[in-house]
Design a binder for these strands. Structure first.
Ligand code: SF4
Ligand code: SF4
Lengths: 150, 150
DNA sequence: CTTAATCAAGACTAAAATCATCCTAATTAT
DNA sequence: ATAATTAGGATGATTTTAGTCTTGATTAAG
């Protein structure tokens, strides 16, 4: 359907949440689930993937939980999504040369290549650090709006 | 999976085929299916959608078949895909305001908006007429390559 | 060393989407 | 009439999506 799955969406919410936590703060599944409105048991599955990919670090047992795995300014939106959904290909012919044998003469093939490139430009350019900053600016702006509505 | 479906892919192939036919030439399901390597019975379902959307015109009965429904330079890649897949939304929050209630404070929302805009720029800018032209240029270039490989 | 807390791993499931196929009906030219 | 074609809908296999649940492993602390 040319739409990101809940896996990808929830992964972004989770990583973004961890990125917004103070250094060293350990977050529990419960916290993340409630704050980001993701079903707890589903989220736990997603966190496993994110842990295996290194985007987050986990510790089991008492005082365990999750922290972000790398500096937030080194984690892009695309990387987060692909960590749980696998690599993005807008059409099968982008998977690899010859995946669709028509690619050698197909005039649509280069268009998909370009479309994907442009999409990646956007998803690669936003890091989790950027998004945390954006969030605080939106919050500030919303507070301003509220004041002006009096 | 953030990938166009076979419906969309096959629709593009079919419309492109019709766009490349000489004015007035009527094409049969069989011809289109063979030339574009799309399962015949599946294609027939897709042609129905394309007909209802006006992108192609059909005539039943003897001497019937399909022709393109509008000038090829007025049909974009995006329109063709959306005719069979429905409108494209890279994430649910793009469907409409409030579809995701977090959109008012979510820093990722504007990124999806931008990503979709960029994607549309590419898919809207290519018409079937462009693609037919591109195809003939690719063919010419491939023939050249072949000659030089001697 | 026991226990409570917490994540890891994988089995399981319901519903929907995907990718088709097939049959019957309607239409059209000859 | 008849042959050629598309229209429409029923059907179906497979995969994906979006989750839940249970059991096991690990850890800190008393
Ligand atoms: S766009 Fe062209 S190359 Fe890509 S899958 Fe379709 S036919 Fe193959
Ligand atoms: S990106 Fe933000 S607004 Fe869009 S669906 Fe996710 S949470 Fe909602």
């Amino acid at each position: 359907m040319l739409q990101i799955t809940r896996d990808g969406e929830y992964a972004v919410r989770a990583v973004l949440f961890l990125a917004s936590q103070p250094e060293g703060k350990i977050s529990l599944i419960n916290e993340i689930s409630e704050a980001q409105e993701v079903p707890k048991s589903y989220l736990s599955k997603i966190m496993q993937h994110l842990t295996r990919s290194g985007l987050v670090k986990s510790r089991r047992g008492a005082k365990g939980g999750f922290v972000i795995g790398r500096p937030a300014d080194t984690i892009t939106l695309r990387e987060t999504i692909e960590a749980v959904e696998g690599p993005i290909f807008l059409n099968v012919c982008l998977i690899k040369k010859g995946e669709c044998h028509r690619d050698v003469f197909c005039p649509v093939h280069p268009v998909w290549k370009e479309a994907q490139k442009r999409l990646f430009e956007v998803l690669d350019s936003k890091t989790m650090a950027d998004l945390v900053k954006d969030a605080s600016e939106i919050e500030k702006s919303n507070a301003e709006d509220k004041k002006h509505r009096n």
